[in-house]
Amino acid sequence: MRNKVKICPSCQKACARTLVQCNNCGTSLELVELASTDNVLMAFVYGIEKGASSLSISMRACNDKHLVFDDPLTVSVCHLNVIPTSAHIPDLRFLFKDPCRGRQILQGMLDEVDTVCLEQFWSDDLFRATYLGNMPPDLRAMGSAGMNFPPSQYQLHLQYVHGPMLPFQYAMFEKGLHLQHGRFFPVQFLLAALAKGEAMRIDVDEDTPVEKIIQLAASCGVDYNRYWSQMWLQVMAIQKKCSPWQDKDFCYRIHGARVFDACGGESDVDVKSIQAADATRQHNKLHWKIRRMGG
């Protein structure tokens, strides 16, 4: 029920202990000491209403095996998380204690989030017209699904980042702060490695280095770098192809730490307050969509 993390001194986001910059606002974490936080994902599983803060979520689907909800970080126009509700699995390494069962669990998570995306986003004509333009109707080609190691929450969770990314977050992606090489593991890589069965069985404990999985997978013909590079190129291609963002959509322009209004005059508005307000607007739209769907 507890996580080992670094707390961002600027936006207070709980970040994975190996990060040197906050993956929400970009603030340096190099001097930040380790701390512990509530494992909110397990709190969701147990139905706990309140911890250090409110534990309410924007829920998309829930059954006896999975819980799907909107990621509060909101990296893209559709950013979902799915967690297993029938078992506590601290992180992706533990899938390799039993590769066959691990692959079944992971495939079930991916199928669940694909269904949510199809029914609650792709089925909406306005969503497709606004964000996807003339992209071909290939759901899996639009989503970058995978898992981070180390995680910021110690319950297995599959992130589903459906392109295109929001402009600020895509800029962070270009700087290497999202879907990071060596930390983000594309679901296609994990499924391919787990499909090797007994050859990928590892006696995992808390201290098992994730590099051991990468190296063993490579010896079985599953190259992490190839899968990660394909995912990276896919994100960039989707961003370029869709390109839904126009100048008229924005009230401010940001250059470094300086903020300018639409007419070019410098503003004293704080960059982080703008980002927080944008996230709130995006969440409100997501909640509206759930109400509209009858959820």
Rank of each mutant, 00 (worst) to 15 (best):
S152M: 03
S152D: 14
S152P: 15
Q153F: 00
Q153V: 10
Q153E: 14
Y154E: 14
Y154F: 12
Y154R: 13
Y154P: 00
Q155K: 03
Q155P: 00
Q155S: 07
Q155T: 02
Q155L: 01
Q155A: 01
Q155G: 00
Q155N: 13
H157T: 03
H157Q: 11
L158A: 12
L158D: 06
L158R: 09
Q159T: 06
Q159W: 08
Q159H: 15
Y160V: 01
Y160M: 10
Y160P: 02
Y160G: 02
V161T: 11
H162Y: 11
H162W: 03
H162M: 15
H162A: 15
H162G: 15
G163Q: 09
G163R: 07
G163H: 06
P164L: 01
P164S: 11
P164A: 07
P164G: 08
P164W: 02
P164N: 08
M165R: 04
M165Q: 07
M165K: 06
M165A: 06
M165S: 06
L166V: 04
L166D: 00
L166G: 01
P167R: 05
P167S: 06
P167C: 04
F168T: 04
F168K: 04
Q169A: 15
Q169C: 10
Q169W: 09
Y170Q: 03
Y170M: 01
Y170P: 02
Y170S: 04
A171F: 06
A171L: 11
A171E: 11
A171T: 06
A171Y: 07
M172C: 00
M172N: 10
M172T: 02
M172H: 13
F173H: 05
F173Q: 03
F173L: 00
F173A: 01
E174L: 14
E174S: 06
K175A: 13
G176M: 06
G176I: 03
L177E: 12
L177G: 02
L177N: 13
H178I: 14
H178Q: 15
H178E: 08
H178N: 13
H178F: 09
Q180S: 13
Q180K: 12
Q180F: 00
Q180L: 03
Q180T: 12
H181S: 07
H181R: 13
H181G: 01
G182T: 11
G182V: 07
G182N: 12
R183E: 14
R183L: 15
R183A: 13
F184P: 05
F184R: 15
F185D: 03
F185Y: 13
F185T: 05
P186R: 09
V187Y: 07
V187C: 09
V187T: 12
V187P: 00
Q188S: 14
F189P: 10
F189W: 09
F189V: 05
F189K: 09
F189R: 07
F189Y: 12
L190M: 13
L190H: 08
L191W: 03
A192H: 03
A192M: 06
A192F: 03
A192D: 13
A193T: 07
A193E: 14
A193C: 04
L194Y: 02
L194T: 04
L194N: 08
L194K: 05
A195W: 04
A195G: 01
A195H: 06
A195N: 13
K196T: 00
K196S: 04
K196E: 15
E198H: 10
E198T: 12
E198G: 09
A199R: 15
A199G: 08
A199L: 11
A199C: 08
A199K: 14
A199I: 04
M200K: 10
M200R: 12
M200F: 05
M200H: 12
M200L: 09
M200D: 05
